[in-house]
């Protein structure tokens, strides 16, 4: 029984991993707490649902959903990030929150607030290993998540693009001096985070067969928690953080019931922020003088 709960927790956690990685990329590279990410997650799920019900092929529907999220993310880059640099630090955060509210309510106007049933693309297919049940969709999303994260850390660590990205993360002005074209690189980072997030939304829809205009909030905010637990800016930290959040969530449902999830998840987040704000695996920030 406990083994099954562990598996469920890891499966759920893999969704948080993708969202947490997106948050950690935005904050680690651009120092931007991008609260439009839950909105992009929802775009991934909702757009693919709408197109599937219109009779599109699943690959085309998912591709279009990812493209839609990437476009929205470029708009966020233009309006929430690029234009608010140099303003008060809370301005980009608030602007991206504005985007979240905007996206949710636009979709609400379009399709209504009901929870919709996502068509089951993989049928009712399960793996059964020694009494443990693993849903096919969940297994696929777990594998895909890890493939993506490994791919991402390869790109960040080994390629020229990754070197440029790490250079901006280290010091933006130095990167500019060294010839990094920041104006062209930053939109790429936004597209990258959008693809990760929207794919998370699609996989959430495939695994749990439900979409709604507000599906991004619960998952997205737990993605923030995953990012902090792992240490802001650390990709593998976000992976561990996402899995921990998934396990805490499933564990608290199993032990105390569904109403206690938020106490457990956000309580541990609060505790961590107080005791160890730089996360479990992050490096402590240079202490301010105050």
């Amino acid at each position: 029984m406990i083994a099954q709960q562990l598996i469920n927790g890891v499966m759920l956690g893999s969704i948080y991993v993708l969202v947490g990685v997106s948050f950690t990329l935005a904050i680690g590279i651009l120092n931007f707490l991008n609260f439009s990410i839950p909105g992009l997650f929802m775009i991934g799920g909702m757009v693919s649902w709408v197109l599937l019900t219109q009779g599109w092929h699943w690959a085309a529907a998912i591709g279009a959903a990812l493209a839609a999220a990437a476009l929205v993310s470029l708009a966020v880059e233009q309006l929430s990030y690029r234009r608010t640099r140099g303003a008060d630090p809370e301005v980009p955060l608030v602007s991206s929150l504005g985007f979240l509210v905007l996206l949710e309510n636009l979709v609400l106007v379009g399709v209504g607030s009901d929870q919709q049933t996502f068509p089951s693309l993989l049928g009712d297919f399960n793996f059964r290993i020694g009494g443990l049940v693993i849903g096919a969709a969940q297994a696929i999303s777990l594998v895909l998540t890890f493939a993506l994260v490994v791919g991402l850390s390869f790109v960040l660590g080994r390629t020229n693009l990754g070197r440029q990205i790490r250079a901006i993360a280290e010091s933006r002005s130095t990167a500019v001096l060294l010839g990094v074209d920041v104006g062209r690189l930053v939109p790429k980072i936004f597209v990258l985070t959008a693809l990760f997030t929207a794919l998370g939304g699609v996989m959430f829809a495939l695994s749990y067969l439900q979409v709604s205009p507000f599906m991004g909030e619960g998952v997205g905010f737990k993605g923030v928690a995953a990012m902090i637990i792992g240490g802001m800016g650390s990709v593998w930290g976000a992976v561990i953080g996402g899995l921990i959040i998934g396990l805490i969530e499933v564990g608290s449902i199993w032990a105390f019931g569904a109403d206690t999830v938020n106490i457990a998840v956000y309580g541990s987040l609060l505790l961590l922020l107080i005791l160890r704000p730089h996360g479990l695996f992050g490096k402590p920030a240079i202490r301010e003088k105050l």
Partner: peptide, 28 residues
């Protein structure tokens, strides 16, 4: 006392988490 040890984004997130916990406690 503990929360204001953190700054900027950490503070915003700590208040965010606190709000969620309070609402969830009253729910139970």
């Amino acid at each position: 006392v503990p929360i204001l040890r953190t700054h900027g984004i950490y503070l915003a997130l700590a208040t965010f988490a606190l709000g969620q916990v309070i609402s969830a406690v009253f729910l139970n």
